[in-house]
Design a binder for these strands. Structure first.
Length: 441
RNA sequence: GGCCCCAUCGUCUAUCGGCUAGGACACGAGCUUUUCAUGCUCGGUAGAGGAGUUCGACUCUCCUUGGGGCUGCCA
């Protein structure tokens, strides 16, 4: 196949939220087009006027942009092609491949619809790029409606006519359309059009093997975004769910993906969505963020007030360098940075119980505050030396743990002495003493 | 019910007839260590069952079982 003729498309119906299974189809289409040098088209199947609002379409665009899925040519709106759909229907009626009939729908609507006439014998077959050879006896497929009693075209005819009009050569879509393909092939043929190549993608399923839905956790792209997932991490993970480069690489750059992606390597089997692996992937991508960018992300998400002069660029860089290997989700940043930017931070009850409410801790905190106060400078190494001297070669745990909880309210976090350096002398001493005084009561 | 599709560690997967079945996530152990992470090292767990083809089958064929999809005036 000549590469300049390859044209594939992502054809979602805008419902306001973009499901991960759906966006994976977009990703595969995009990668296929970019790999082959073909075109990636975007068609919005907005015939459902109830759900297809401008807001829903906007959400779709935002989602595409977030994942850096750029498309070629102008967006194709299905509603703008209704005239062509109906022309095709007339043509089908004229040649006997469609007919009008009085029908009562499931929900009780009665009226005249247009049905597409399926052949009554023979086999319909196609070679699916991922599923292989597919065949079905024509007699196993019933005639089906293509125009509603209100005169509006139905998915089957609209979809096929749009694909013809957009010169689509490759249809890469969800597994749930396999059965439709046998119907659509007949429409293409009846209309005298070339039948495109098909590639059907397996579904993303939950731990029970059922289609992954919102009941299983985040199911829409927007939710992953809100939860602090990086677009590249989600993209990479979704790609791996059903495709691999054939070697052991898993974390791939966009360029590598484009270079390596082949539809032929896409899996037939349904893949279970593994949130744990996605989380790991996200951590990998967070570690890849350039230090400067991560620092500004930390500053942005910390909710810090600009007024604090002590917090200069160096300060943020130091804090974020400590945070970067520890952050799994960008959404973890606010709670992790809170003790650094605000004196009003929560104390973890368990940590307080375990580290502070112990005999001698009050005295220990007062004592250490005094020793820190005398420190010649406020560098992490200097502060560490103070505690080292106290521990006399034994573990520093008995000092480190209470200090950590006293100044940050939590049992875990970045290195303690780095933490103290970042807090500064004044805040550290104040917090140590205030915690000690609370214990006295 | 009918039709279609699928089947390797718990999960994602490598393997396109030669396998002591490899990797990643997760899990366990250890090292590093002030915590939590990171990093490094090590470890366990897999070819649904049954026939057949073959010198040889995870790989090919058939059956069984299990799972999924479709069977709309939804897309």
């Amino acid at each position: 196949m000549s590469s300049e003729t390859i044209r594939c498309r992502f054809a979602p119906s805008p419902t306001g939220k973009v499901h991960i299974g759906n966006i994976r189809a977009a990703i595969y289409n995009w990668l296929f087009a970019r790999h082959t040098g073909g075109k990636f088209l975007l068609r919005i199947e907005d015939t459902d006027l109830e759900r297809s609002t401008p807001e829903a379409i906007k959400a779709l665009f935002e989602c595409m942009e977030w994942l850096k899925l750029d498309w070629d040519e102008e967006v194709f709106y299905q509603t703008k092609n209704v005239k062509r759909h109906l022309e095709a229907v007339d043509k089908l009626i004229a040649c006997g491949r469609a007919y009008k009939i009085e029908k009562t729908s499931r929900d009780g609507k009665t009226g005249e619809v247009v049905m597409f006439r399926m052949p009554k014998e023979g086999t319909i077959e196609f070679d699916d790029i991922v599923k292989g050879h597919m065949a079905k006896k024509a007699e196993d497929i019933q005639d089906f409606a293509i125009v509603r009693s209100d005169g509006s075209p139905i998915f089957h005819i609209a979809n096929v006519v749009d694909d013809i009009d957009q010169n689509v050569t490759h249809i890469i879509r969800g597994d749930d359309h396999v059965e439709n393909t046998f119907k659509h092939i007949e429409i293409f043929k009846a209309l005298g059009a070339c039948v495109p190549k098909y590639a059907h993608l397996s579904m993303i399923v939950n731990q029970q093997g059922k289609p992954y839905s919102k009941r299983d956790g985040a199911a829409f792209v927007g939710e992953f975004r809100e939860q602090g997932y990086l677009p590249d991490a989600l993209f990479n993970y979704l790609l791996l769910l059903g495709w691999n480069p054939g070697d052991e690489r898993e974390v791939l750059s966009r360029d590598e993906m484009v270079k390596l992606f082949e539809l032929e390597r896409v899996h037939v089997t349904a893949a279970k969505f593994d949130m744990k692996k996605l989380a790991w992937m996200n951590g990998e991508y967070i570690k890849k963020i350039p230090a400067e960018d991560f620092a500004s992300e930390v500053e942005k998400r910390s909710g810090a007030k600009e007024s604090n002069a002590a917090k200069d660029k160096t300060w943020w860089a130091y804090l974020s360098s400590q945070l970067q290997p520890r952050v799994k989700f960008l959404n973890d940043i606010p709670s992790m940075t809170l003790p650094f930017v605000n004196d009003d931070f929560p104390f973890d009850e368990k940590a307080v119980e375990k580290r502070l409410k112990k005999p001698g801790v009050k005295e220990l905190l007062f004592d250490i505050a005094e020793r820190f106060e005398k420190a010649p400078n406020w560098e992490a190494t200097e502060l560490e030396n103070v505690v080292k001297a106290l521990s006399q070669g034994n573990g520093m745990g008995p000092w480190v743990h209470p200090i950590r909880v006293a100044v940050s309210g939590r049992g875990e976090g970045i290195g303690l002495f780095e933490m103290l350096q970042l807090l500064g002398r004044e805040k550290t001493l104040a917090r140590l003493r205030s915690a000690a005084e609370k214990l006295a009561q």
